[in-house]
Design a protein around this nucleic acid. Sequence first.
DNA 1: GTCTATAACGAGATAGAC
DNA 2: GTCTATCTCGTTATAGAC
Lengths: 204, 204
Amino acid sequence: MALRRSAEAGETRSSILDVSERLVQTRGFNGFSYADVAAELGITKAALHYHFPGKSELGNALIVRYADRFNDALVGIDAQGGTAPAKLRAYADLYQGVLRDERMCLCGMLAAEYQTLPVPMRQSVVRFFDDNHTWLARLLKAGRSEGTLHFSGTAHEAAQMIVGALEGAMLVARSYGDADRFEVVATRLVDELAASRPVTRRRA
Amino acid sequence: MALRRSAEAGETRSSILDVSERLVQTRGFNGFSYADVAAELGITKAALHYHFPGKSELGNALIVRYADRFNDALVGIDAQGGTAPAKLRAYADLYQGVLRDERMCLCGMLAAEYQTLPVPMRQSVVRFFDDNHTWLARLLKAGRSEGTLHFSGTAHEAAQMIVGALEGAMLVARSYGDADRFEVVATRLVDELAASRPVTRRRA
DNA sequence: GTCTATAACGAGATAGAC
DNA sequence: GTCTATCTCGTTATAGAC
């Protein structure tokens, strides 16, 4: 499809990852093929197999790169300072950016297909969620300490809820082709946590 | 695989739906085949095509049956009375029951694969979510009126958040093979809404 | 209603030339 | 690094016998 300029320094490799990533995020790991990627890049399937021996290796490389990029974004949020609620909003905006591209979170998509994934990919997906939970729990603890975030139960539980709520909101919003649906939920979620209110209840 | 007794009154048809439903909920619509279903039922693929001409028809029948069953459950919750928070908890328990079976919500799974689905299936998926939002919004409004549920914004927005949060919690919990993760989130969600607290904030 | 048989296609993957 | 050519298998689907 697209014209082919001569490949330089891992350019093909990253192009393959770019196209595959978009296809997985929109169609799922079981919903795209080497042929799709090859056609779009104007190369052959055999060339793909040179860079990634099998779909399993390609899939795992996708998750690792995605998780790295996501972690970089989290570091960036921490680096630029701001209040805990602002950081939480920035976190939600990461998801929103994905959805505005008409994509599902890569790992949210793979979570749906989890039982059909090669084992290495499964581990990478779980690691992605673990990293998110850890980062969020730290943010939530800090926010609670400084009195800017309020929630019941442990920070880790709240973190799990946030990740789940954002992933689920993306999942459903995509069926409506309506990113605004996500925005409403994300705003509610952040505002609920940032709202000043008494937290006077039991834990689960 | 399973032994075959002679088919009576639509029994084969419903067996096909049962097996297919489980396969879609665990592996996805693009992750199962007629061969899988046929093997498990001990019949041939050709027999499947007699009952459901194509995968599209089978898929749509799955959603319709699932949505009907879900709606029956909602009617059941309404029928047995109880407080709005109790009904909300019962709603969350519907999801939990699915997850304890190591399944994803059928329509949550299909939402992930949305862009690869035949158009009739897409419409049925959206209808499922619409029905859920409608039912929940009605419950939320009633709860707010009687002072047992508290939330900011419109009931419909809150309903969208609840559906998304439950779907997302299922999605992630399944990757951990840990239904308890869902339980924690569901309990938090219900408790947050049932908690008596001032609602003194702006809408999104 | 269910079977056998087979068509038609696409998937993931490999060998070996350039 | 990329190609052509090919292989093997799985998938959806149909024709026609029983």
